[in-house]
Design a binder for these strands. Structure first.
Length: 803
RNA sequence: GCGGGCGUGGCGGAAUUGGCAGACGCGCUAGACUUAGGAUCUAGUGUCUAACGACGUGGGAGUUCGAGUCUCUUCGCCCGCACCA
């Protein structure tokens, strides 16, 4: 037998697969389909990270198994290539981002190929390709035409020194990542997408999806539906302050109000407010704070009372003060709250700091010590209309009362905010709209798409907060598609999320230039059957793409209301020291090094064997060696074969058990135990005197999805026909996979004292007879009274004794 | 602060979901082969104990014939975040 040389074996089979187009998804729509999906990577300058192959190998295993099970499988990859790091690299090195992108993609592609993923490379896509972003722009235009895109003044992070807008990521602890200068908020008119219009459906439709529970929970909490009321508070100066609350039952305990520093009533009533100086100073402070500071450092409540105006509690008619504080956000509810310090923790803290009155209106706690927020058992007090009622009933009664009196209306609110869709950047999809003095914002005609990114001399954001495109007068100045008059283009670009919100649709039909994907292709392939990705994408990417898909469904462009039927998530791979891999920590492992030293199959086996797929796990070089050792032992089986027969009788049961276990484990993310099963089976083989072709055949079939190269090579060496990847997935006989004789533990008072070998379906009498024959059992039961016997066939025999 | 998750040998992790805790792998120990071993093979390897045996899944309590698994409580760690009224 020759040595196992991974370089030549892996290259050989990669070439054969490519030549034979072994993994191409077929246009034959009569076969059953399967569509597994992995998150396409951002092609960074660092190249592939060892974190990438974990999810990719996992779904590659599923894809390969499905092909062997007779499915037409669509498994594709592409590049999510717009984005900040490339752009910043381009600025720094004065290279066009398109060139940087091209280089990075070439590297990523070569790396993916070297690991042997069974992608259908003919479907590769790239979000920065005009033939791709043409359709991203087309979708945006549909959103715009259906009223789901609108302009709004929104704050951007503004670096006071660089004089550019910054992404959240570029703001570190309130200062600019690059120059360390303070970052402030600055209002800018931006395009927004009304994802909130889909909030209810984005929650409800989760019920029918096969997402892992923590993804569902996290999405639901992020969307944050709450059922409450908007209630109007009159003020002493005649206007109305509207608040949102989920606890209208506590209204008798509303002893003051708080509005956010940005609340419009402040400017509107400048004339009657007597302490505008103090208010302005507080607002300025709030403005200087980044979101991070406002939330993180603001553990102690701060605020300023508005003097000159009071609110009237609509049920008690009491005159109560109005404060401003940054713990109330303009972006949620109405930007104003009725503060009930007795029964809301934040209000309670605020009241304690500023010595505001606390009235107990729900009995059961001690409001002098802390806010009482238990809504299950509380009973209302000090609330004439609802005294003695439980919280839930009190809510219903007071809501009805307030509604009838015209003081309030029931209202559902969501935490979810609309999606800020504008970026003041160059390396993104141009927004295909023009602003016409006569017609307002007008979409470009669809047949004129793509609107390509123009060549600019500098990619640096401009010092007035505009995108680099804003400096290109000849590009900006255009004519209105509607009236033909002079107009100018939108100069902001789309966020990186845009291209990734629909890429799985393009995989279905990637070369179509009539439409983003043909109806037939979509009807056949969609929905994605299994989408695996990182938890960090749960609330943004996953939600955004569900939103876009639902919209496309509503306009009849796609045939399913959800894009992904199943969603799972993998854990991160950490450095050997247990910390997150990063350049600065110096603990980064490059997959190329593993592939060249041990081979792609070793890398694949290792990443699947390393631990629970769903959990984070530290890298370990010595464990990699163990996986290489396993493959070498598999390789050495070639020499051990000493019979032509099918399966050795002594292995029949083991093989059927292994097929069952591995088949199930590949479906349930338990790749580690699947591989452990194969290792154990191999150990059996190595110990055996006789080992046949048939025995090894099963090992190769089961191991092939994880280690595709070496298994093909051994298959060929042993003279089997065709390729492993063309074979049928082995079936197991449930009867043969079952043990009929087992080792059963015999316990005395819950402690194991002996084991007996017994037929699975034996009854208590048979078990007792065998157990009592054991010396240990006799010893521990001698002279004692048997009070109880628990016998669970196939599991346990426990004797409870006394005395 | 809010939301989500995790604590099992020296290490990564198993445990049919309430039934022999530690599968499989790493590491380690001893031996074999060898000029050599950081290659390979064989055996051993949770802790305490000379042994019988006892103890053991972050800590404490509880339910149960039986708890890593269920309940309560407490401590610690990780991830995400937009103080969401």
């Amino acid at each position: 037998m020759r040595d196992y040389s991974h370089e030549s074996v892996e290259k050989k089979w990669q070439d054969i697969w490519e030549e034979k187009q072994a993994f191409k998804a077929h246009q034959d729509y009569s076969k059953p389909k399967y569509y597994p999906l992995v998150e396409f990577p951002y092609p960074s300058g660092q190249g592939l990270h060892v974190g990438h192959p974990r999810p990719y190998t996992a779904l590659d295993i599923v894809a390969r198994k499905r092909r062997m099970e007779g499915y037409n499988v669509l498994f594709a990859i592409g590049w999510d290539a717009f984005g900040l790091p490339t752009e910043n690299y381009a600025i720094k090195n004065k290279i066009h981002p398109a060139i940087v992108t091209e280089q990075n993609i070439a590297r990523f592609k070569a790396q993916c190929k070297s690991i042997g993923f069974s992608f259908d490379w003919s479907r590769e896509i790239n979000t920065t390709d005009p033939n791709y972003y043409k359709w991203t722009q087309w979708i945006f235009i549909q959103l715009f035409k259906h009223g789901l895109a609108y302009k709004k003044e929104m704050d951007i992070n503004w670096c006071t020194s660089c004089k550019v807008g910054l992404a959240n990521e570029e703001v570190v602890n309130g200062v600019c990542e690059r120059c360390g200068s303070p970052v402030v908020k600055r209002a800018k008119s931006q395009w927004m997408l009304k994802i909130t219009e889909y909030a209810e459906r984005l929650i409800d439709d989760l019920d029918d999806l096969d997402y892992i529970e923590r993804v569902k929970i996290q999405q639901k909490n992020w969307i944050g539906k709450s059922v409450g009321m908007e209630i109007d508070f009159k003020t002493t100066t005649g206007e109305v302050l509207r608040v949102y609350t989920t606890r209208p039952d506590t209204i008798y305990g509303a002893t003051y109000m708080v509005v956010s520093p940005e609340h419009p009533m402040i400017d509107e009533r400048k004339d009657v407010i007597t302490n505008m100086d103090a208010i302005e100073a507080y607002r300025e402070q709030a403005r200087l704070k980044s979101d991070f500071e406002r939330t993180e450092l603001n553990k102690d409540k701060t605020g300023v009372p508005i003097e000159g105006v009071w609110a009237i509690n609509p049920v008690t008619e009491a005159r109560i003060p109005i404060w401003i504080s940054d713990y109330v956000l303009m972006s949620y509810g109405t930007g104003a709250i009725m503060a009930v310090p007795g029964h809301d923790t934040r209000d309670w803290e605020f009241a304690k700091v500023f010595d505001l009155p606390i009235i107990e209106v729900v009995a059961g706690g001690d409001v002098e010590k802390e806010a009482f927020t238990d809504i299950a058992d509380g009973v209302l007090i000090n609330s004439p209309l609802i005294d003695g009622l439980k919280v839930a009933d009190a809510k219903a009664v007071i809501s009805k009362y307030l509604e009838e009196k015209g003081l309030g209306t029931p209202k559902v609110n969501f935490k979810l905010r609309d999606w800020v869709f504008s970026r003041q950047r160059y390396w993104g999809e141009p927004i295909p709209l023009v602003s016409c003095p006569e017609c307002g914002w007008v979409a470009l005609p669809e047949e004129s798409l793509p609107l390509k990114l123009p060549e600019v001399s500098s990619y640096e954001p401009t010092d007035n907060g505009e995108s680099p495109l804003a400096a290109m007068t000849d590009w900006i100045e255009t004519t209105c598609p509607k009236c033909g008059g002079p107009a100018h283009r939108e100069t902001d670009t789309m966020p990186q999320w845009a291209g990734s919100s629909w890429y799985f649709l393009r995989y279905c039909d990637p070369h179509n230039d009539e439409t983003f994907a043909s109806k037939e292709a979509l009807e056949y392939w969609m929905p994605v059957d299994w989408y695996n990705g990182g938890m960090e994408h749960t609330t943004l990417h996953l939600l955004y793409s569900r939103f876009w898909h639902k919209f496309l469904f509503d306009i009849g462009a796609v045939n399913t209301k959800e894009p992904y039927q199943k969603r799972t998530s993998h854990g991160m791979i950490l450095g050997e020291n247990g910390e997150k891999m990063s350049k600065s920590r110096g603990n980064v492992v490059n997959p190329d090094d593993i592939v060249s030293a041990y081979g792609a199959d070793t890398l694949r086996v290792y990443e699947m064997f390393i631990g629970d797929f769903e959990k984070s796990v530290p890298w370990s070089d010595s464990s990699v060696k163990g996986c290489r050792r396993f493959l070498e032992r598999v390789w050495s089986l070639v020499d051990d074969v000493n019979a032509e027969e099918a399966v050795s009788p002594e292995f029949e049961r083991d093989i059927h058990k292994a097929i069952k276990k591995v088949t199930e484990d590949y479906e349930t993310l338990k790749f580690n135990t699947a591989i452990a099963t194969l290792m154990a089976l191999l150990n059996q083989y190595k110990k055996a005197e006789k080992i046949t072709h048939g025995d090894i055949r099963y090992m190769l079939l089961l191991l092939n999805p994880v280690a595709p190269h070496i298994t093909e090579e051994i298959w060929e060496m042993l003279g089997f026909e065709g390729m492993v990847c063309e074979q049928s997935w082995p079936a197991y006989d449930p009867e043969k996979a079952k043990d009929d004789v087992i080792e059963m533990a015999v316990q005395i008072n819950g402690k194991v004292r002996a084991t007996i070998t017994i037929e699975v379906d034996s009854d208590l009498d048979a078990a007792r007879e065998k157990a009592m024959a054991e010396e240990k059992v006799q010893q521990f039961t001698a002279g004692k009274k048997i009070v109880k016997e628990i016998y669970v066939p196939g599991k346990i025999y426990n004797i409870v004794v006394k005395g």
